[in-house]
Design a protein around this nucleic acid. Structure first.
Length: 510
DNA sequence: CCTGAGATAGGACGCCACTG
DNA sequence: CAGTGGCGTCCTATCTCAGG
């Protein structure tokens, strides 16, 4: 194959050489015969041609400039045309949309904000992720509109997930706004223990336009243990440096601390701290039970209450799950119930023996009356108090009642409540109170009441010390302080309800 | 009329694939 | 690569119906 190609190239080269030689000889002959004759003619013609060439090239360059200018105009106009064409198309599109009733929900690759808001509203109303699209379609049909696109269930769900983020920023923004407006804030906080994990939850109370407060829960965090000291030191670790007091922390958590005036710094440093009154009530049980134990030198009633809670309540962990007034009222039923359980559990038999002791009867009666006369009213007070400073009035009433009962225990059995204004009796309580008062007190009971009331006095005086005597919130409270503590709730129930949700998260599958 | 067991409907999440 | 859509799986709520 190579040999054949070489041959072909050699032949072609030869032919090319022959043709070139022929052309040269012919051209030379022709040139020789005519050149002399037309040479002069050509010269004048060339002169006139170059003359006109100059004219034309001047014209040409002028025209070229003109063309350049025009083409600039042209491209500008073209651009403008494209724009107006675009807007014409858009207008036509939206006109067509209006004509056909089509609404655009989906633009540039994602759903519009309005659409997302609608989806979230529907979700809030309990429309299932899967149904949201069809609900929107259905409503669109009602108003004779067409939707260009509908979100699928998974997209709806993604919006919902994304909304968590939005909600979080919203919470932060609300708090920021409140701080900027110099609103009175209340910071709520508590810790809880869920299957080995310690959780700390924070919330803020912001004043609302029409009175009352808006509660924002934020910052559910793991903490290594439940003590305030640990919480504080982990906070300290996160902020860095060595912080030991509120005064050390504030400059680090408040933006622009350095630029604030001394007065506003001073104002920020003023904190009002209140303990949750529900916890006061909850812990009161232990105070009373301890006092009673001291009185009888044994812990019989405690055992009874615990055992009844454990055996008959729905939660094993409760001193509080079963109210004492009810145990007192049902003690006879409990006894006969256990009697009927032939061969019952040993715990039941032991409980039966305890229930027979007269001292248990007496102590249950006292516990029941305390439920009715102290804890109940306090609970209602804590839930309904308009301003936390009103606590002062009630507490002094409570304390004078407690002192009175300590000095003359008989008045405890009169059934008159500690705080008269809260004497309203909850539905069904009347019979309990009646039942509780039906047993006339023995000498021992009166002694027990005396002991209990002495402990109670110490307990309440200690916990409410700010509201009584020389406490900082006793008597007439300064207007400024009243204003600043406007959002302080008497209880920490908002945080506790937050923990309710947390509990739900821990105990139920999604 | 109440209760408990079984059946059924429906909701939520993780994972994967597709697309502009 | 973010947004979107579909599927399988698990779980809960509700309904139904028999039996007391």
């Amino acid at each position: 194959g190579c040999a054949v190609h070489t041959r072909m190239i050699k032949n072609l080269t030869a032919q090319l050489f022959r043709a070139r030689r022929k052309r040269l000889s012919l051209g030379a002959a022709r040139f020789d015969s005519k050149t002399q004759a037309s040479n002069e003619k050509l010269k004048t013609r060339l002169a006139s041609l170059s003359d006109s060439n100059r004219t034309y090239s001047r014209e040409n360059s002028y025209l070229r400039e003109k063309v350049d200018a025009l083409s600039e105009d042209k491209s500008r106009l073209e651009n403008e045309l494209r724009f107006s064409e675009n807007s014409r198309l858009e207008a036509e599109e939206s006109l067509a949309e209006v004509r056909s009733g089509t609404v655009t929900l989906f633009e540039n690759g994602s759903y519009t904000s309005d659409t997302v808001v609608t989806v979230l509203e529907l979700l809030d109303l309990g429309v299932a992720d899967e149904k949201v699209g069809r609900v929107m379609e259905s409503v669109a049909k009602l108003v004779k509109a067409k939707l260009d696109r509908l979100p699928s269930p998974s997209t709806v769900r993604n919006f919902a997930v994304a909304s968590l983020s939005v909600a979080k920023s919203h919470a932060y923004e609300r708090i920021d706004q409140a701080i900027e407006r110099d609103d009175q804030l209340c910071l709520y906080s508590d810790e809880t223990n869920k299957s080995g994990t310690k959780l700390q939850l924070f919330g803020a109370g912001l004043p609302k336009e029409g009175g009352g407060q808006e509660i924002i829960l934020f910052g559910l965090v793991d903490v290594p243990d439940k003590s305030a000291e640990t919480a504080f030191s982990s906070m300290r670790a996160r902020l860095g440096g060595r912080l030991t007091t509120v005064g050390d922390i504030l400059p680090r958590v408040v933006t622009d601390w350095d630029t604030l005036s001394d007065a506003s710094r001073q104002q920020l440093m003023t904190f009002h701290v209140f303990y949750c009154q529900l916890h006061v009530i909850a812990n009161y049980t232990n105070v009373v039970l301890e006092a009673l134990a001291e009185h009888e030198r044994l812990t019989t009633v405690l055992t009874v209450v615990k055992e009844v809670s454990r055996l008959f309540g729905d939660r094993s962990a409760g001193l509080h799950s079963c109210s004492k007034d009810r145990i007192f009222c049902h003690r006879k039923s409990l006894k006969s119930f256990i009697d009927k359980m032939v061969g019952g559990r040993p715990e039941l038999i032991k409980l039966r023996e305890l229930l027979d002791l007269p001292i248990v009867d007496e102590h249950l009666q006292i516990l029941g009356l305390l439920d009715q006369l102290v804890t109940g009213p306090l609970w209602r007070l804590a839930e309904n108090v308009v301003h936390v400073m009103e606590t002062g009035t009630t507490v002094s009433l409570l304390l004078s009642w407690v002192s009175e009962c300590r000095d003359s225990p008989l008045s405890f059995f009169s059934g008159n409540g500690s705080v008269p204004s809260l004497h309203s009796i909850a539905a069904g309580d009347e019979q309990f109170l009646e039942n509780l008062l039906s047993l006339s007190p023995s000498e021992a009971s009166l002694d027990a009441v005396s002991v209990v009331m002495e402990s109670s006095r110490g307990y309440f005086e200690h916990l409410f010390e700010d509201f009584i005597g020389t406490g900082k919130y006793s008597g007439k409270v300064d207007e400024v302080v009243m204003e600043r503590t406007l959002c302080a709730s008497a209880t920490n129930r908002f945080i506790e309800s937050g923990f309710g949700f947390v509990d739900r998260l821990y105990s139920y599958k999604p």
